[in-house]
Amino acid sequence: MIPFVKREMIDKKKWMEDGDFLDNLALAQSLPGPVIINISILTGYRLRGLKGSIVSVIGTTAPSFAIILIIALYLWQHRDYYLVQAAFMGIRPAVTALIVYTIFTLGKRVFEDYRSLLLFVLFLSGLIFLKLHPVTVIVVSAITGILWPLKNNNKKEQTP
């Protein structure tokens, strides 16, 4: 989705420079919330203040909101049909693979520091076996980061 955003905002509308876009992207990814929403807010604010932010958020949300509602209203009821059930038996493992693959691609950069890998294993075991709340893990990781700084891999992060 990010390359699409870049093409629309920089190449077509020329709303900002390449460098500014990367700064905005890094910021959007550091803050909580869906990255695309954060980018919309930052871009909208830059161009037209708070009103701009709200309009941009409505713009990025409305199309998928409408599509999801249509699926939920008209298509989801056919989920029990045997053909759809069989298809979902194959779709679910494919989705699992997509999520696992994200860990591979992001891990390449993050795990350059072996301590990240160690923390990853610790956090993941805590989440799965001790049922730690995700928020707890986020807070603990920020504190560990301050007390025990990880090597700065200093590249722009890309999250899905």
């Binding site: 493992p93 699992t96 891990g107 993050v110 990240s116 923390l119 805590g126 989440l127 990781s141 700084p149």
Partner: peptide
């Protein structure tokens, strides 16, 4: 601030790992 933002990275990956685990257990 830099250190904290970097410190979150392994946790974010662990959260993605948890999502993979939850989805995986119910898919595979």
């Amino acid at each position: 601030l830099q250190h904290a933002l970097h410190g979150i990275h392994p946790a974010v990956l662990a959260l993605i790992g948890l999502a993979a685990y939850v989805v995986g257990v119910n898919s595979i």
